[in-house]
């Protein structure tokens, strides 16, 4: 079947924060993720900076290279061009925001090199 986005990115999806509060996916703010990670005993927020965005040989996919965490580890991921990432202070962003909004009705900005996205890591990761 055609690759598709997880349902929780669809506008109106109910998201539960670590303190139990319920919010709609389109209303989430940077603070919601930061506070939830602070409450979580297992998860920590990592900053992942977009270093490159290349088109993939796979149609409708892009390859995004991130510098992840303190050590700026180089990680490349291949994602659907409409896959939304949460950018600090900016909100949902994707390589093809029009497509994201068309498919998910989720307001979305353009993901660009230099954007710092929220990612997760385990707190007890040595």
């Amino acid at each position: 079947s055609a690759p598709s986005l997880p349902p929780y990115f669809t506008k109106g999806s109910i998201i539960q924060l670590a303190d139990g509060e319920l919010k709609r996916v389109e209303d989430l703010k940077t603070e919601d993720f930061i506070q939830s990670a602070e409450i979580s005993s297992e998860l920590k927020i990592d900053s992942s900076t977009v270093e490159r965005i290349d088109s993939s040989h796979t149609p409708h996919f892009a390859i995004i290279q991130f510098a992840v965490g303190e050590h700026r580890s180089q990680v490349s991921v291949e994602v659907l061009v409409e896959y939304p990432f949460f950018v600090f202070g900016q909100g949902w962003s994707s390589c093809c925001p029009d497509r994201t909004t068309q498919l998910l009705e989720l307001p979305c900005a353009k993901l660009s090199v230099g954007d710092v996205c929220i990612s997760l890591t385990l707190k007890n990761l040595k």
Binding site: L43, Q74, V75, S76, S119, L120
Partner: peptide, 19 residues
């Protein structure tokens, strides 16, 4: 109505996935 946990929305990009 399904409720999704906050941490499902953002990725783990740890080095275990580095290329």
């Amino acid at each position: 109505v399904p409720v999704f946990p906050w941490h499902s929305l953002v990725p783990f990009l740890e080095t275990s996935q580095s290329n």
